[in-house]
Write a protein that binds this DNA or RNA. Structure first.
Lengths: 193, 193
DNA sequence: TGTAAACTTAGATGGGTATCAAAATATAGT
DNA sequence: ACTATATTTTGATACCCATCTAAGTTTACA
């Protein structure tokens, strides 16, 4: 789930984005229900309920147990908690855009230094790790545009309170350039290793 | 978020249930973007992007900063992590159905003894707390229907491995009755305090 | 005050899908 | 085999919403 098919996450949200299906999940989270029961409690016809249950089953949110002619549906709680944990992983969204913000090796390093809200917890000591953080930070800036120092500070503060340190490091690694109080992002080919 | 307006959760999922909006979130999670930039990177017209951003803003997933005539949109990561945590809370779904499975005082007790997957971690010592757990467990059974012992065991094992203890307790509290190997749920008015 | 730039709002169109009734399938029991 | 029951599948209808163009709004600047 952590870094899989982009449409997987989308399918989850689609499955959850309807009132009838959310209410169905609520019922089957109490206990197993048959289609009949659910149709009665939801004031819908069986085919409609069956249709929704099929969608929920496709993404693994409900479980089906057959017993004679009656089908017992129940919540699959692990799926829901896996989804929740996936949402907490930073960088999960970025992979959806087809952007691939950095390599997956670096992503692991990065994950250790980011809170679920996407802020920096720390600044690592090793140069390799520091660079991963700074690459990520530098990519927050748009290429081909000027930034005032206040803008640079604001952008850094979205991720860490210590603007001075990170501003200085970004310039030191030649990720940002500075002239007369104006900053801009340099092409990645010029960034220092 | 823990136990609020049922439609709030639904609105979140609706906002997230479209590929364009997920990709928008991915872009603004990198850094601030203007509407123009986003329209260009997404190959959509500005009004379309503006429309989607408005929806995302309504549920607090993105933030807007005005600067002259250009509007800078950025991800609001706290909203996403709050949503994720809400999904991990057991009983969150139940409140959506208008079911209200138990009182909120009891819900707090229950929450302490449930894993995010909805399984029982423990069996409390105090009678009051034990009863809360058993009420919740008894409501997993359907009234007006017979259960074989195997079915009772299966239902209990969805929540805790120790079927014998809980089966015995449910009968002891007169929540379940037993005759000739057949079990059934008793009306709540007869359950012992 | 007038013009340009960036965005939002309004209105129109098309595609997706929720719901239902009717038909098809599967299982249990006689 | 036949019937009854529970569910799924099919096909039709209606509604919701994503996207576009065109028009309206706001801010900056001459």
């Amino acid at each position: 789930m952590t870094s899989q098919n982009p449409t997987l996450l989308l399918n989850f949200f689609k499955a959850l984005a309807h009132e009838s299906r959310l209410r169905l999940l609520a019922f089957v989270s109490e206990r197993e229900h048959s289609v009949q029961e659910l149709a009665k409690r939801m004031a819908l016809k069986e085919p409609t309920v069956s249709h929704h249950l099929a969608l929920l089953r496709e993404v693994g949110l409900v479980d089906l147990r057959l017993d004679g002619t009656t089908h017992w549906y129940a919540l699959e709680p692990k799926t829901l908690s896996r989804l929740a944990r996936a949402l907490l992983a930073p960088g999960q969204l970025a992979s959806l855009a087809g952007i691939e913000p950095q390599l997956s090796t670096d992503e692991k390093i990065l994950r250790n230094y980011l809170t679920p809200e996407g802020r920096l917890k720390d600044f690592p000591a090793s140069r390799k790790k520091r660079r991963v953080i700074l690459v990520w930070l530098a990519r927050q800036f748009e290429e081909g545009r000027d930034y005032s120092e206040a803008e640079v500070n604001a952008l850094i503060e979205r991720r860490h309170h210590d603007r001075e340190t990170f501003r200085r490091e970004l310039v030191g690694y030649k990720m940002l350039a500075r002239k007369a109080g104006i900053y801009w992002r340099l092409p990645e080919s010029e960034w220092l290793p």
